[in-house]
């Protein structure tokens, strides 16, 4: 049944679109309908009613909500994210620049955390129940619960202020090469690495422990295969399947989680853009930013499903029936 995979993906794609639509409704309700009167929210309670009415008309907020929603979504679908009230210019270029920056930071995070997390997880599984395992599990758990702003401040103090090994600012000088960029990104990436490390290590450990005790691993051992082959071909191949899904899904989380880090390190990413837009009551920017983060989340989840499907022959080729 070769279309098993196709059907699986079609279903996931449909669900993703549904999620995006629901998100757009929620965002719209949150920014347009709940404040009741956007212009009043922007201008404040003491503003002149005439100014409020004028602004509402300028924003198009005096139309019925459904119409506003439709024109907003229609604009999004044609690539028009609207006009920023704060900057008096189109939203799209801001979003695009911020997204690229955030992706760079997220990429840095995963470049560090994936090999370390998987490595530690496998190591823990191979020494399950022994001190190494306990050390990794305890470290992973305790690191996960440290909030980003706490670890960020500690890291800034140690590496940028005391040791002066790393630049304090995440923003690199204009025209900097990739290496310099990475150097600037290292410090902001670490707080997220710390949060994600325990998660990935735990997933890897669980998958590996399960695969190690699986019957097929015993079969492989009893074939007389060298331990290294047993591990790489039989254990890890199956053990890392769930981990890969988790990593892909975490990409989306990381993008949302960047808000704190980006504002702490004054980094012009999507997180700080959204935060700034919320503070400035720049609704068009806020809507677009939240939707982009949500969209990214949906895409990474879809990618995770796709990765699982491609790696697991049971999904790829379908069952017998």
């Amino acid at each position: 049944m070769p279309h098993a995979l196709g059907r699986f993906l079609a279903k996931r794609l449909g669900l993703s679109l549904l999620t995006l639509w629901l998100l757009s409704v929620v965002v719209f309700l949150g920014t347009q309908v709940l404040p009741g009167d956007p212009a009043r929210a922007i201008l404040g309670p003491l503003a002149d009613p005439r100014a409020v009415a004028a602004l509402n008309e300028q924003l198009g907020a005096d139309r019925p909500p459904v119409e506003i929603y439709l024109s907003w979504v229609g604009g999004l679908l044609t690539g028009d994210m609207g006009q920023s009230y704060a900057y008096r210019s189109p939203v799209a270029p801001f979003i695009e620049a911020a997204l690229v920056n955030s992706l760079k930071l997220a990429g840095m995070v995963f470049l560090i955390v994936v090999p370390i997390g998987i490595g530690a997880g496998v190591l823990a599984a191979l020494h399950a129940g022994r001190p190494v395992d306990r050390a990794i599990s305890v470290a992973g758990l305790s690191l996960t619960v440290i909030p980003e702003f706490v670890s960020s401040i500690a890291l800034i103090l140690v590496f940028a202020v005391i040791l002066r090994w790393l630049p304090l600012s995440a923003t690199w000088p204009p025209g900097a090469g990739p290496l310099t960029q990475m150097q600037h990104l290292l410090l902001p990436a670490l707080p997220l690495v710390i949060v994600l490390f325990g998660y990935i290590a735990r997933m890897t450990r669980a998958g590996t422990v399960e695969a190690l005790s699986a019957d097929y691993t015993r079969t492989a051992i009893l074939k007389g295969l060298p331990w290294r082959t047993v591990l790489s071909r039989h254990v890890l191949r199956n053990a890392l399947l769930p981990t890969i899904t988790v990593i892909a899904a975490q990409m989306g989380y990381a993008l949302g989680g960047l808000v704190v880090v980006e504002s702490l390190f004054r980094y012009q990413g999507i997180g700080s853009l959204v935060l700034g837009a919320a503070r400035a009551k720049d609704f068009a920017m806020l809507q677009a930013g939240v939707l982009v983060i949500g969209g990214f989340f949906v895409v990474t989840t879809l990618a995770a499903d796709l990765a699982t499907a491609m790696l697991d022959p049971r999904l790829r080729t379908g069952g017998r029936r």
Binding site: D215, Y216, T219, R233, H234, R237, N238, L311, D312, R314
Partner: peptide, 12 residues
């Protein structure tokens, strides 16, 4: 062993 379905590696 018992249970051949589990004795074979599902991804090879």
């Amino acid at each position: 062993f018992q249970d051949p379905g589990r004795a074979l590696n599902p991804s090879l």
